[in-house]
Design a protein around this nucleic acid. Structure first.
Length: 263
DNA sequence: AACCATGCCAACCGCTGTAGA
DNA sequence: GTCTACAGCGGTTGGCATGGT
């Protein structure tokens, strides 16, 4: 049995919003707040689908939106975040105050992709175009988390993945952090994971000479290591269960996903 | 001026995840 | 455990604006 449609399509407007509709929606939300999008159109006297109202509000009418061109700093931040998160536009938007996921997605597709391509960088993989050797040595990898029954221990994925995997990892990490009052992450109404202090700064470092598995050729690594166990992530002495040292020594940069922020 | 190609962006569509019954 | 309703997300589309011929 299929799901019922979100609204009665035959009696809803589609297409561009009029000034009057915008005013009605804005006035209603200012008076009653966001939420219950399904019933909002009727209550606000709008012949629109609830989803449409939500989109219009979030992407256009919200008062805290920053309109206008993206700054160079925003450009670079988007690129950096995209290299980490992939097409997780809502996550990226969460790091850019006043910008919406739709806006960033459009901006990526129309500007940044071209910008990266002109720089000789593949916008999908963030690797150099036409440079197989370089590409093989620029790694953006995330560890898909898998908690064993001993604690927060993570498995290393064989190949680089995007943050879909990392986002999944957060969920698993959380299982442990929630039980620790010093590392509790916020759970927004039981839905979205919220961690307030994400540091997504990456660093590009020379190869580690301590690691025999690292090629001795010049190499650029951009490695976001997500797989620290709880003790290591706390900066505590290694526990008996700690397997962090098994990460091939590629801890050239550390991404602390305890602090990733989700909308 | 007319036509066409391209770029941009608001809006839509379909899907997923989650809460609650 | 299953089903339904709902919110939210990412991909795609459609229409307008702009520039080139």
């Amino acid at each position: 049995m299929g799901r019922s449609p979100c609204c009665e399509k035959a009696h809803t407007n589609k297409g561009a919003w009029t000034k009057e509709e915008d005013d009605r929606l804005t006035a209603y939300i200012k008076a009653h707040g966001e939420g219950c999008w399904r019933s909002l159109p009727k209550a606000a006297g709008l012949l629109r689908c609830g989803k449409s109202c939500r989109l219009r509000w979030i992407n256009y009418l919200r008062p805290d939106l920053k309109r206008g061109n993206f700054s160079d700093e925003e450009d670079e931040l988007i690129i950096k975040l995209h290299s980490l998160l992939g097409n997780k536009w809502s996550l990226i938007a969460g790091r850019l105050p006043g910008r919406t996921d739709n806006e960033i997605k459009n901006y990526w597709n129309t500007h940044i992709r071209r910008k990266l391509t002109s720089r000789g960088i593949d916008p999908v993989t963030h690797r150099a175009i036409n440079s197989d050797h370089a590409a093989s040595n620029i790694t953006i990898s995330f560890e898909a988390a898998q908690r064993d029954d001993k604690g927060a221990v993570f498995r290393r994925d064989a190949e680089p993945t995007k943050v879909a995997a990392a986002a999944a990892a957060i969920t698993h990490v959380d299982h442990h952090h929630r039980s620790n009052p010093h590392h509790q992450m916020e759970w927004g109404q039981g839905k979205a994971l919220k961690c307030p202090d994400l540091n997504l700064d990456l660093c590009i470092s020379p190869p580690s000479h301590e690691d025999p598995m690292v090629d001795t050729k010049p190499v650029v690594k951009r490695e976001a290591v997500v797989g620290l166990c709880f003790s290591c992530s706390m900066g505590l002495p290694r526990s008996a269960d700690c397997k962090c040292s098994s990460f091939m020594g590629l801890r050239t940069a550390m991404l602390d996903f305890r602090s990733i922020e989700m909308k």
